[in-house]
Amino acid sequence: MAKSGIYQSSLTKKYVIALAGLFLISFLFVHLGINLTVLIPESQDTEAKEIFNKAARFMMLNPVIKVFEIVLFAGFIIHIIYGLILQIHNWMSRPKRYKVEGWSHTSPFSKFMIHTGMIIFIFLIIHLVDFYFKAKFFEGAESVWYDGEEYHDLGALIIQKFQNLGFVIFYIASFLFLGFHLHHAFQSAFQSLGLNHPKYFPFLKALSLITSIIIPVGFTIIPVFIYFQIV
């Protein structure tokens, strides 16, 4: 794939990276939705973390989701590899750099996509090791019982993780960079796909801004709430 990627047209690469990116954004929303359920407090019908633990199990075991999981991983890998290919090629396109680097009137985030992307990638690895693989094999998770059925208490695992201030800061910082990444990424994907219309593009740009705020804010309120025991 990497090899054929090199020989594809630069525009084809852009489509691929844009489509993969948009798919990843949609995943982020799903992921955020599930994560937020961990904050749902105890109520008459459900215990604390119950919805979260149930949803987690659904996500782990449902066969349709399992197929999507493969697609998702492919999406990540394609997005990353294509991003790297483009970037290396871009660096090669200007072998001699400027003495005074350009600071044209442009979105500052757009210039650092590879850097923010790298940070997100590092976060992703740590995140996979810390949460995903553990969750996958239900490592270190206690059992809880809802309506007579055994579940793994992944919610407790999360709460335990977020007791560590260093980890919380790292987590929040990573999402800050994700926000930077998304700020450019969302509208940029539409431009790459050729969907730039003077009438609608300002709307897409606004949507891009909103996304770049909602996603990081949504994800980071979880550790903040947990750490400060707001819920």
Binding site: N90, M92, S104, T106, S110, K111
Partner: peptide, 8 residues
């Protein structure tokens, strides 16, 4: 190089 929609 490739376009990364920086708009410079």
């Amino acid at each position: 190089g490739n376009c990364t929609n920086t708009y410079a």
